[in-house]
Amino acid sequence: MDRRIFLRSALVGAGVAAFSGAVWETALAAPAQPGAGPYGPLAAAADGNGVLLPSGFTSRILARTNQVVAGTGYRWHGAPDGGACFPNGSGWMYVSNCELPLAGGASVLRFDASGTIISAQRLLSGTSGNCAGGPTPWGTWLSCEEHALGRVWETYPATGASAVARTAMGRFTHEAAACDPVRQVVYLTEDKSDGCFYRFRPNTWGDLSSGTLEVLCGPTDSTSGTATWQRVPNPTSLLRPTRRQVSAAKHFDGGEGCYYANGLVWWTTKGDNRVWKLDCATDAYELAYDDSLVTSGTAPLTGVDNITGSRSGDLFVAEDGGNLEICVITPDGVVAPFLRLAGHEGSEITGPAFSPDGSRLYFSSQRGTSDNSFAGMTFEVKGPFRV
């Protein structure tokens, strides 16, 4: 029997209830279902920038690959991917990775208090396939290389200081990172069909130069349970992949985005269109979304990729595939489209991140309307986001 039919039938047969409660911490263990989103339906037609948005929201294009960013002398990088925002004096910054092979890296856009771009700069060059990553509580950006011997690079958006490779965090097909300041660990995803989910415990919080890499362990076919963690014996091995060093490791189908908030960490797996949730205090894990468990209608979210969250607790998940949307998953278990790109069918949406005050959402179309890594576009959406 097809996996999707089996799982959908199992959910209905078990009579699993939908999420209840207003916050994720008290939500019941049932994957999100389609419903009316908190921002209403998308407009019938795209705006002048090719973005379909709910009423009250507007978009602007901030940067295009190989074109000079307005107000600066900097040409924006190709294949923009993972991103994050940071406060910067009275303004803020948006960092974006470059996923080009052998010519990867990361760049930053800096804004004043009004949202005007005041500078742009390259933060990292000469790396390869910098896909996603994650911000740290101390204001650096972890840029992750997506190849077999990929490294995590710590970059410095505020100063532009030279990036540093953090090899103690493992050499593998890195995708994303999310910091848990309470337990003082960094969670890491791996973009392989049999990839793993890791956590790095630095010897000193705020210093990623040394520490212990651990892998989440549990039955590979389980969708809920309590995880255990085991140390990866040789995180920097060039011969034996980290995902194969611990026999009890739980494997995930294509780890993608990763996001932490309020004691919970979420990550996505594109191979099976799932969003996972881990309670960091108890190590209990479960599904927050699975397109095969949608019980009525068509799954609104497929090709799950990068993920971020808003102040209200809503998750925003970008699609690599599907119909090029960013979908919202609310704490009470509703999943719905928030925006859609028109004419970008050969691209993917990358790097969703909110400004520090939560009023603006940034993201990129990696290959733009030309299905070309040198046609990327980076956007800003402004409007009445829930806080």
Rank of each mutant, 00 (worst) to 15 (best):
P219V: 05
R166V: 01
I61V: 13
D279Y: 08
T378L: 13
Q245W: 06
S20R: 15
C327L: 00
S310E: 11
N234L: 11
F111S: 08
G376A: 11
N88R: 12
R244P: 02
G368F: 00
L341Y: 06
S347Y: 05
L208I: 04
M1I: 12
W76A: 12
L149D: 04
T72Y: 00
T159R: 14
S59K: 11
C131A: 05
G104F: 10
V68Y: 02
L264T: 08
R201N: 05
S90P: 12
R240L: 15
A103K: 09
L142F: 03
A63T: 01
G78Q: 12
K250E: 06
G82T: 03
S237W: 03
G195N: 09
R8V: 09
P352S: 04
V12W: 06
P135S: 11
Y74G: 01
V108I: 12
G333K: 05
G13K: 14
T26K: 15
G139L: 10
R386P: 01
T65E: 08
I349Y: 06
C327H: 00
V328Q: 03
L216D: 09
A106E: 13
F385E: 09
P219Y: 00
L52D: 04
S143R: 10
A161M: 14
T155F: 00
V294G: 11
S312L: 05
P181C: 08
G218I: 09
Q121F: 04
C258S: 11
P181T: 05
V334W: 00
Q33G: 05
P235V: 04
L238K: 13
G129R: 15
T268F: 02
P137I: 06
C179M: 07
L11S: 14
A63R: 01
F379W: 00
L100M: 13
V246K: 13
T236V: 14
P202G: 02
N97M: 02
A22G: 10
D207V: 11
T127L: 06
C179Y: 12
G82H: 01
R75L: 00
F379L: 08
N88G: 12
S125T: 15
L239F: 11
L339G: 08
A158R: 14
V152F: 05
K382C: 13
L109P: 08
T268Q: 02
T269F: 05
G134S: 13
T242Y: 06
A148Q: 14
A165Q: 13
A32H: 06
S247K: 00
T226E: 03
